[in-house]
């Protein structure tokens, strides 16, 4: 089972002028096997939602709840959330100098599973995951995200998704900066993950392009810190044709 329930989530960040509310009451339920796309203009708070779920210290939760299978996610530390089954594929993955990809992957897998993976199958799994994402086998010897191209960073994120096998994956603008070939490779990886039993996906994107490769069950339009409209995948087609203007105008009226 995997069910992520976000209820009336309110989040602020500290600015020079004091706390600023970014999320203004987000309510969303992702049942197992469902893929939800969150689409919205820049600055609408999409990434804040992703990072708040993962527990980034920059964001202050001022109200609401987030539960995963009934467990209080907001009470957990960042690493506890990951071990509970949450995964965030980041828009800007962070460089960790001097730490090799293979060491990083093994350490993360050991932390998630609570025991070290069996060496023989693990090496095979890692090589397979890297290969499926068109990453060279020597990739494992490179330092985490250091000197990676934009595409390599995103493919590395999806390799982690497949290897760490969370319950719910939050993908924050995984499509941004990818050419069409890389987009297909990354989408294939996400689809392989979706095909596994009971997985939930929250796909955050600015563009409809990735939704041609990863078909969502639900689409939510995110405007000014909350969900402005929800619908099926046809909502994405409508956004493709009309853009976000329709949602932005009433906000200023």
């Amino acid at each position: 089972m995997s069910k992520l329930v976000i209820t009336d989530l309110r989040v602020t960040v500290d600015t020079e002028d004091g706390p600023k509310e970014i999320l203004k009451g987000v309510t969303l339920t992702i049942n197992e096997g469902e893929t939800h796309a969150i689409m919205g203009p820049n600055g609408s708070g999409k990434s804040t939602l992703a990072y708040s779920i993962a527990g980034h210290p920059k964001y202050t939760i001022t109200g609401g709840t987030v539960t995963l299978d009934g467990q209080d996610v907001l009470a957990m530390s960042v690493d506890e959330r990951a071990r509970a089954g949450l995964f965030l594929a980041m828009q800007y993955p962070v460089e960790v100098p001097g730490v090799s990809v293979s060491n990083f992957l093994r350490t993360a897998k050991t932390a998630i599973d609570g025991e070290a993976p069996k060496l023989r199958t693990w090496v095979k799994d890692v090589n397979a995951a890297l290969q499926q994402l068109n990453l060279d086998p020597t990739f494992g010897t490179r330092n985490v995200n250091e000197g990676f191209s934009g595409g390599e960073k995103k493919r590395h994120e999806i390799a982690q998704l497949e290897l760490l096998d969370p319950k719910v994956a939050v993908l924050d603008e995984t499509d941004s900066g990818l050419d069409i070939d890389a987009l297909k490779v990354v989408s294939d990886g996400v689809n392989r993950f979706r095909a596994r039993e009971g997985k939930g996906v929250l796909l955050i994107t600015h563009y409809t392009r990735i939704l041609r490769y990863i078909e969502p069950d639900f689409v939510h339009v995110f405007v000014d810190g909350k969900v402005a409209e929800s619908g099926g995948k046809e909502l994405a087609d409508q956004l493709e044709a009309e853009g976000y203007d329709r949602y932005l105008k009433p906000a200023t009226a």
Partner: peptide
Amino acid sequence: QLFYLQSRGIS
């Protein structure tokens, strides 16, 4: 860096 590593389950 710490957030990135911790978000992968690492204490």
